[in-house]
Write a protein that binds this DNA or RNA. Sequence first.
DNA 1: CTAAAAATTTGGAGTTGTTGCAAAATTTCA
DNA 2: TGAAATTTTGCAACAACTCCAAATTTTTAG
Lengths: 213, 213
Amino acid sequence: MAEGLRERKKRQTRQYISDVATGLFLERGFEAVTVAEIAEAANVSVNTVYNYFPAKEDLFFDRSAGVADRLARWVRGRDAGESAARAVLRELRAEVEAVSPRVGLFEGYDRFMRVIHEAPALRSRLWSLQQEIHDTLEAALREETGAADGDPLPDLMAGQICWVHQAVFVTIGREMLAGRKPAEVSREALVLLDDIEDLLSEKVLNYAVRGAA
Amino acid sequence: MAEGLRERKKRQTRQYISDVATGLFLERGFEAVTVAEIAEAANVSVNTVYNYFPAKEDLFFDRSAGVADRLARWVRGRDAGESAARAVLRELRAEVEAVSPRVGLFEGYDRFMRVIHEAPALRSRLWSLQQEIHDTLEAALREETGAADGDPLPDLMAGQICWVHQAVFVTIGREMLAGRKPAEVSREALVLLDDIEDLLSEKVLNYAVRGAA
DNA sequence: CTAAAAATTTGGAGTTGTTGCAAAATTTCA
DNA sequence: TGAAATTTTGCAACAACTCCAAATTTTTAG
């Protein structure tokens, strides 16, 4: 029990630093806030900040843990008789229809978007995240389909499915940044999802169907 | 006439600095070479380097000018009765079949790939380049099809076509990095191109067909 | 409860990319 | 040749990030 105390304190400091940082970023932009300022505002030394976060960007994206394997999880959890792509489309539609903050549909998301938009370092991180999403999805598809080692299909299919995901996210981000209301953007995204599904070939829509009856 | 002299000299210095830099990068890696070293090796001050190149990464990617609008150019130059996607597929096949250095099919490309692979800053630049390619292609598609302002299709189609391009490039890069011979990789890429075309829907393959008879 | 042990925080010095500015060197032009 | 424009350079500075050893705090053992 005595051990849990230090752990808890560490998590608290970490969280606090991250909160203070995001607050400052939202207020003044990513590049305009210096790590030294963050440290000072959090009553901590600069070195302590770097103890918890390997880089400045990690202070901003701390909340987005568990996003990297979202697509892979959705695919692994697809229904019987459902393909990988259709599972992702279904889950995406559910999130969008529910106006879920998990897909950026909440009042104030535009402030986050603005910070990202203006900071190349943060955009770079998002691309890196996309890469991770792709790789975990490809691995999942390989496992689920038992594809041979040299088979290029899991890679290509992961590419197509990630494209779906990305197209929705980019559109939501763009519209929210433009000041639209979450409910509006939700409706628009649902139409977009139909357009997107329309552009996918049967081969993609029927890949990795979970065998069952 | 007298004016051309200074211009020429500037281009020479610029080229020389870039050459020296890429040489060092290929030899020892991007991060291991410092800008100060490059300047010294090129008999120039650090400030002069920054006079010509806005950032260290630009020293490496100086050769890749004109890549950003390649897809847009291919689409604009498509044949009568040919769609945007098919034009890109045709041009890609031609480059791959010709074992063209423009698509990375040359002895020694693995050395470039290794440098990029090990330097996050350079990979980040490539993503940024992809974004540019996408945006110029989208603009071209909008112009060519005369799509309405709110039409999401040019964006989506650009996404699909860029995906084709990217999938080919990534595969070539991966295989070259693994030490394969250009001729081998060329053959493999042609098969991949067939796989890719197979995954595109008719809607994509028939978008932006150039009107003619 | 206290002292040693383990982990965390901190200060300080240093490296690198990058920018700004004014002086110096070079090129162009009258 | 000399003035004007331009390029190059040196210098100072800032910010992200790393390394290291000292100081502080927390845990644990006696």
